[in-house]
Protein backbone atom coordinates (compact mmCIF):
# COMPACT_ATOMS: atom_id res chain seq x y z
CA UNK A 1 0.00 0.00 0.00
CA UNK A 2 1.38 3.39 -0.98
CA UNK A 3 1.58 6.28 1.45
CA UNK A 4 2.56 8.78 -1.22
CA UNK A 5 2.22 8.58 -4.96
CA UNK A 6 2.84 11.02 -7.75
CA UNK A 7 2.17 10.64 -11.45
CA UNK A 8 3.55 12.67 -14.34
CA UNK A 9 4.79 15.37 -12.00
CA UNK A 10 6.36 18.12 -14.07
CA UNK A 11 7.54 21.56 -13.15
CA UNK A 12 9.06 24.52 -14.90
CA UNK A 13 10.13 27.75 -13.26
CA UNK A 14 8.95 30.83 -15.12
CA UNK A 15 10.14 30.79 -18.73
CA UNK A 16 13.00 28.48 -17.83
CA UNK A 17 13.88 24.91 -18.63
CA UNK A 18 11.71 22.19 -17.08
CA UNK A 19 13.20 21.10 -13.75
CA UNK A 20 11.00 18.02 -13.30
CA UNK A 21 9.92 15.55 -15.97
CA UNK A 22 7.19 12.99 -15.30
CA UNK A 23 8.23 12.17 -11.76
CA UNK A 24 6.31 9.12 -10.57
CA UNK A 25 7.16 8.53 -6.94
CA UNK A 26 5.77 5.52 -5.14
CA UNK A 27 6.53 5.66 -1.43
CA UNK A 28 5.22 2.55 0.37
CA UNK A 29 3.47 2.87 3.70
CA UNK A 30 5.81 2.53 6.73
CA UNK A 31 8.91 2.65 4.54
CA UNK A 32 11.97 4.85 4.77
CA UNK A 33 12.34 6.19 1.28
CA UNK A 34 15.64 7.77 0.27
CA UNK A 35 15.16 10.38 -2.43
CA UNK A 36 18.61 10.72 -3.90
CA UNK A 37 20.25 12.90 -6.45
CA UNK A 38 23.07 15.38 -6.88
CA UNK A 39 22.58 19.06 -6.04
CA UNK A 40 20.17 20.67 -8.49
CA UNK A 41 18.60 17.34 -9.51
CA UNK A 42 15.08 18.47 -8.54
CA UNK A 43 14.74 16.92 -5.08
CA UNK A 44 13.75 20.07 -3.22
CA UNK A 45 11.37 21.17 -5.97
CA UNK A 46 9.66 17.76 -5.78
CA UNK A 47 9.37 17.92 -1.98
CA UNK A 48 8.03 21.48 -2.14
CA UNK A 49 5.39 20.32 -4.61
CA UNK A 50 4.44 17.50 -2.25
CA UNK A 51 3.75 20.05 0.49
CA UNK A 52 1.91 22.48 -1.76
CA UNK A 53 4.63 25.11 -1.37
CA UNK A 54 4.85 25.43 -5.14
CA UNK A 55 1.79 25.56 -7.32
CA UNK A 56 1.53 22.29 -9.24
CA UNK A 57 1.61 22.68 -13.01
CA UNK A 58 1.09 19.13 -14.21
CA UNK A 59 0.60 15.66 -12.76
CA UNK A 60 -1.08 14.34 -9.64
CA UNK A 61 -0.02 14.05 -6.02
CA UNK A 62 -1.75 11.61 -3.77
CA UNK A 63 -0.92 11.22 -0.07
CA UNK A 64 -2.68 8.71 2.22
CA UNK A 65 -4.78 7.81 -0.82
CA UNK A 66 -6.20 11.33 -1.17
CA UNK A 67 -5.43 14.02 -3.72
CA UNK A 68 -3.40 16.90 -2.34
CA UNK A 69 -5.34 19.46 -4.40
CA UNK A 70 -8.64 18.61 -2.72
CA UNK A 71 -7.57 17.53 0.76
CA UNK A 72 -4.50 19.68 1.46
CA UNK A 73 -5.35 20.69 5.02
CA UNK A 74 -6.47 17.20 6.11
CA UNK A 75 -3.32 15.68 4.60
CA UNK A 76 -0.99 18.23 6.19
CA UNK A 77 -2.41 17.38 9.64
CA UNK A 78 -0.57 14.07 9.34
CA UNK A 79 2.59 15.34 7.68
CA UNK A 80 5.71 16.69 9.34
CA UNK A 81 8.31 18.41 7.22
CA UNK A 82 11.72 19.99 7.17
CA UNK A 83 12.58 21.64 3.86
CA UNK A 84 16.13 22.91 3.38
CA UNK A 85 17.17 25.01 6.40
CA UNK A 86 14.94 24.74 9.48
CA UNK A 87 12.28 27.44 9.86
CA UNK A 88 12.95 28.73 13.35
CA UNK A 89 12.04 32.04 14.95
CA UNK A 90 15.41 33.11 16.23
CA UNK A 91 14.04 35.59 18.80
CA UNK A 92 12.05 32.77 20.46
CA UNK A 93 13.36 29.95 22.63
CA UNK A 94 13.41 26.32 21.51
CA UNK A 95 10.33 25.58 23.64
CA UNK A 96 8.49 28.65 22.29
CA UNK A 97 9.25 27.62 18.73
CA UNK A 98 7.58 24.29 19.44
CA UNK A 99 4.74 25.92 21.39
CA UNK A 100 3.71 27.74 18.20
CA UNK A 101 3.22 24.44 16.44
CA UNK A 102 1.78 22.71 19.49
CA UNK A 103 -1.14 25.16 19.35
CA UNK A 104 -1.80 24.57 15.70
CA UNK A 105 -1.49 20.78 15.95
CA UNK A 106 -3.35 20.71 19.28
CA UNK A 107 -1.03 18.27 20.99
CA UNK A 108 -0.48 18.27 24.77
CA UNK A 109 2.13 20.77 26.01
CA UNK A 110 4.05 17.86 27.57
CA UNK A 111 4.90 16.69 24.06
CA UNK A 112 7.30 19.66 23.71
CA UNK A 113 9.59 18.34 26.45
CA UNK A 114 9.25 14.86 25.00
CA UNK A 115 10.49 15.78 21.51
CA UNK A 116 13.22 18.06 22.85
CA UNK A 117 14.46 15.14 24.93
CA UNK A 118 14.30 12.88 21.90
CA UNK A 119 16.49 15.15 19.75
CA UNK A 120 18.89 15.87 22.60
CA UNK A 121 17.88 19.48 23.22
CA UNK A 122 16.16 19.12 26.61
CA UNK A 123 18.84 21.15 28.36
CA UNK A 124 18.49 24.07 25.95
CA UNK A 125 14.71 24.44 25.89
CA UNK A 126 14.88 28.01 27.20
CA UNK A 127 17.73 29.11 24.97
CA UNK A 128 16.87 31.33 22.01
CA UNK A 129 17.05 29.57 18.66
CA UNK A 130 19.23 32.40 17.35
CA UNK A 131 22.00 31.25 19.68
CA UNK A 132 21.88 27.66 18.40
CA UNK A 133 24.58 26.11 16.23
CA UNK A 134 23.59 24.84 12.78
CA UNK A 135 23.43 21.27 14.09
CA UNK A 136 21.20 22.28 17.01
CA UNK A 137 18.91 24.17 14.66
CA UNK A 138 18.66 21.09 12.50
CA UNK A 139 17.70 19.00 15.53
CA UNK A 140 15.10 21.55 16.56
CA UNK A 141 13.75 21.49 13.01
CA UNK A 142 13.37 17.71 13.29
CA UNK A 143 11.68 18.11 16.69
CA UNK A 144 9.20 20.54 15.09
CA UNK A 145 8.53 18.11 12.25
CA UNK A 146 7.80 15.17 14.59
CA UNK A 147 5.94 17.13 17.29
CA UNK A 148 2.47 15.98 16.26
CA UNK A 149 3.45 12.34 15.59
CA UNK A 150 2.91 12.62 11.85
CA UNK A 151 2.22 9.55 9.78
CA UNK A 152 4.55 10.90 7.08
CA UNK A 153 7.79 12.78 7.61
CA UNK A 154 9.22 14.67 4.65
CA UNK A 155 12.82 15.68 5.35
CA UNK A 156 15.02 17.53 2.89
CA UNK A 157 18.67 16.78 3.60
CA UNK A 158 18.14 16.60 7.36
CA UNK A 159 21.77 15.81 8.16
CA UNK A 160 23.05 19.13 6.76
CA UNK A 161 25.21 20.75 9.40
CA UNK A 162 25.35 17.71 11.65
CA UNK A 163 28.66 16.24 12.80
CA UNK A 164 29.27 12.48 12.24
CA UNK A 165 27.89 11.66 15.66
CA UNK A 166 24.82 13.78 14.97
CA UNK A 167 24.30 12.00 11.65
CA UNK A 168 24.32 8.62 13.43
CA UNK A 169 21.89 9.89 16.08
CA UNK A 170 19.59 11.29 13.40
CA UNK A 171 19.65 7.96 11.56
CA UNK A 172 18.84 6.05 14.74
CA UNK A 173 16.03 8.47 15.55
CA UNK A 174 14.41 8.08 12.13
CA UNK A 175 14.74 4.29 12.26
CA UNK A 176 13.17 4.27 15.74
CA UNK A 177 10.28 6.48 14.58
CA UNK A 178 9.72 4.20 11.63
CA UNK A 179 9.82 1.00 13.69
CA UNK A 180 8.06 2.15 16.85
CA UNK A 181 5.41 4.45 15.42
CA UNK A 182 5.15 3.18 11.86
CA UNK A 183 6.05 6.61 10.50
CA UNK A 184 6.72 6.70 6.78
CA UNK A 185 9.86 8.73 6.17
CA UNK A 186 10.72 10.40 2.88
CA UNK A 187 14.25 11.71 3.19
CA UNK A 188 16.28 13.41 0.50
CA UNK A 189 20.03 13.40 0.25
CA UNK A 190 22.75 13.90 -2.32
CA UNK A 191 24.90 11.20 -0.68
CA UNK A 192 23.85 7.58 -1.02
CA UNK A 193 26.41 6.48 1.55
CA UNK A 194 24.74 8.74 4.11
CA UNK A 195 21.33 7.09 3.82
CA UNK A 196 22.44 3.60 2.79
CA UNK A 197 22.05 2.27 6.32
CA UNK A 198 18.77 4.09 6.86
CA UNK A 199 16.48 3.55 3.91
CA UNK A 200 14.41 0.59 2.80
CA UNK A 201 13.50 2.12 -0.58
CA UNK A 202 15.35 4.38 -2.94
CA UNK A 203 14.43 6.82 -5.68
CA UNK A 204 17.28 8.31 -7.70
CA UNK A 205 16.62 11.56 -9.51
CA UNK A 206 18.90 13.42 -11.86
CA UNK A 207 18.23 16.45 -14.04
CA UNK A 208 14.57 16.23 -13.10
CA UNK A 209 14.09 12.61 -14.14
CA UNK A 210 13.55 9.62 -11.89
CA UNK A 211 16.29 7.17 -12.97
CA UNK A 212 15.66 4.39 -10.49
CA UNK A 213 12.99 3.51 -7.97
CA UNK A 214 12.74 0.40 -5.88
CA UNK A 215 13.94 -1.32 -2.78
CA UNK A 216 17.48 -0.97 -1.57
CA UNK A 217 17.96 -4.69 -2.29
CA UNK A 218 16.96 -4.15 -5.91
CA UNK A 219 19.52 -1.38 -6.16
CA UNK A 220 22.13 -3.68 -4.61
CA UNK A 221 21.34 -6.36 -7.21
CA UNK A 222 21.80 -3.77 -9.91
CA UNK A 223 25.08 -2.76 -8.37
CA UNK A 224 26.32 -6.35 -8.50
CA UNK A 225 25.69 -6.51 -12.24
CA UNK A 226 27.68 -3.33 -12.72
CA UNK A 227 30.73 -4.60 -10.82
CA UNK A 228 34.00 -5.11 -12.71
CA UNK A 229 37.75 -5.37 -12.24
CA UNK A 230 39.93 -2.52 -13.41
CA UNK A 231 43.53 -3.07 -14.44
CA UNK A 232 46.19 -0.50 -15.13
CA UNK A 233 49.56 -1.67 -16.49
CA UNK A 234 52.69 -0.30 -18.17
CA UNK A 235 51.66 -1.99 -21.44
CA UNK A 236 47.88 -2.42 -21.72
CA UNK A 237 48.09 -3.83 -25.28
CA UNK A 238 50.40 -6.64 -24.22
CA UNK A 239 48.27 -7.28 -21.14
CA UNK A 240 45.12 -7.45 -23.29
CA UNK A 241 46.72 -10.14 -25.51
CA UNK A 242 47.86 -12.20 -22.48
CA UNK A 243 44.37 -11.99 -20.95
CA UNK A 244 42.78 -13.11 -24.25
CA UNK A 245 45.17 -16.09 -24.35
CA UNK A 246 44.07 -16.95 -20.80
CA UNK A 247 40.39 -16.76 -21.81
CA UNK A 248 39.63 -13.61 -19.75
CA UNK A 249 37.29 -11.26 -21.70
CA UNK A 250 38.86 -7.83 -21.21
CA UNK A 251 38.36 -4.51 -22.99
CA UNK A 252 40.00 -1.14 -23.02
CA UNK A 253 38.38 1.43 -20.73
CA UNK A 254 38.96 5.11 -20.18
CA UNK A 255 41.50 4.45 -17.44
CA UNK A 256 43.06 1.12 -18.32
CA UNK A 257 41.55 -2.31 -18.91
CA UNK A 258 38.13 -3.46 -17.74
CA UNK A 259 37.59 -7.11 -16.79
CA UNK A 260 34.41 -8.84 -15.61
CA UNK A 261 33.77 -9.12 -11.85
CA UNK A 262 35.53 -12.10 -10.29
CA UNK A 263 36.48 -13.43 -6.86
CA UNK A 264 39.66 -12.03 -5.20
CA UNK A 265 41.76 -15.22 -5.76
CA UNK A 266 41.16 -14.93 -9.50
CA UNK A 267 42.27 -11.31 -9.44
CA UNK A 268 45.45 -12.39 -7.63
CA UNK A 269 46.06 -15.12 -10.22
CA UNK A 270 45.71 -12.66 -13.12
CA UNK A 271 48.11 -10.30 -11.41
CA UNK A 272 50.65 -13.10 -10.93
CA UNK A 273 50.41 -14.25 -14.56
CA UNK A 274 50.91 -10.72 -15.92
CA UNK A 275 53.93 -10.09 -13.71
CA UNK A 276 55.43 -13.47 -14.68
CA UNK A 277 55.05 -12.49 -18.36
CA UNK A 278 56.95 -9.25 -17.74
CA UNK A 279 53.98 -6.83 -17.59
CA UNK A 280 54.33 -4.19 -14.89
CA UNK A 281 51.01 -3.95 -13.04
CA UNK A 282 50.38 -0.50 -11.59
CA UNK A 283 46.91 -1.13 -10.17
CA UNK A 284 44.35 -3.92 -10.14
CA UNK A 285 41.15 -4.22 -8.10
CA UNK A 286 37.39 -4.69 -7.94
CA UNK A 287 35.33 -1.64 -8.87
CA UNK A 288 31.67 -0.63 -9.00
CA UNK A 289 30.32 -3.23 -6.61
CA UNK A 290 29.23 -0.64 -4.07
CA UNK A 291 26.05 1.39 -4.07
CA UNK A 292 27.85 4.68 -4.47
CA UNK A 293 29.30 3.48 -7.76
CA UNK A 294 25.96 2.41 -9.13
CA UNK A 295 24.53 5.75 -8.03
CA UNK A 296 27.32 7.59 -9.85
CA UNK A 297 26.92 5.25 -12.80
CA UNK A 298 23.17 5.91 -12.95
CA UNK A 299 23.43 9.67 -12.84
CA UNK A 300 26.44 9.63 -15.15
CA UNK A 301 25.22 7.35 -17.94
CA UNK A 302 21.43 7.15 -18.00
CA UNK A 303 20.88 10.86 -17.84
CA UNK A 304 23.43 11.58 -20.57
Amino acid sequence: MLCLETTDLCHRYSAGEAVLHDIALAVPHASIYGFLGPNGAGKTTTLRLLLGLIRKQRGTISIFGRHLDEHRVEILRQVGSLIETPSLYEHLTAAENLALLQRIHRVPAARIAEVLERVGLAATRDKRAGQFSLGMKQRLGIAAAMLHRPALLILDEPTNGLDPNGIIEMRDLLIALNREEGTTVLVSSHLLAEVERLVSHVGIVHRGRLLFQGTLDALRRESQSAAHVSLHTADDGHALRLLADAGVPARCGSAGLVLPAMPPPHIAAINRRLVEQGVEVYAIGAQGGDLESIFMNLIGSRAA
Binding site: G52, V73, E74, S87, I104, A144
Partner: peptide, 18 residues
Protein backbone atom coordinates in the same frame (compact mmCIF):
# COMPACT_ATOMS: atom_id res chain seq x y z
CA UNK B 1 9.35 40.40 8.19
CA UNK B 2 9.46 37.92 11.11
CA UNK B 3 8.58 35.17 8.63
CA UNK B 4 10.93 36.37 5.91
CA UNK B 5 13.94 36.89 8.19
CA UNK B 6 13.53 33.47 9.78
CA UNK B 7 12.85 31.77 6.45
CA UNK B 8 9.63 30.52 8.02
CA UNK B 9 6.98 31.07 5.35
CA UNK B 10 7.55 27.54 4.09
CA UNK B 11 6.77 26.12 7.53
CA UNK B 12 3.69 28.34 7.89
CA UNK B 13 2.35 27.17 4.53
CA UNK B 14 3.06 23.52 5.38
CA UNK B 15 0.81 23.76 8.46
CA UNK B 16 -2.71 22.36 8.27
CA UNK B 17 -4.24 25.80 7.87
CA UNK B 18 -6.26 27.36 5.09
Amino acid sequence: QIEVRNNAWKQVHALPLH
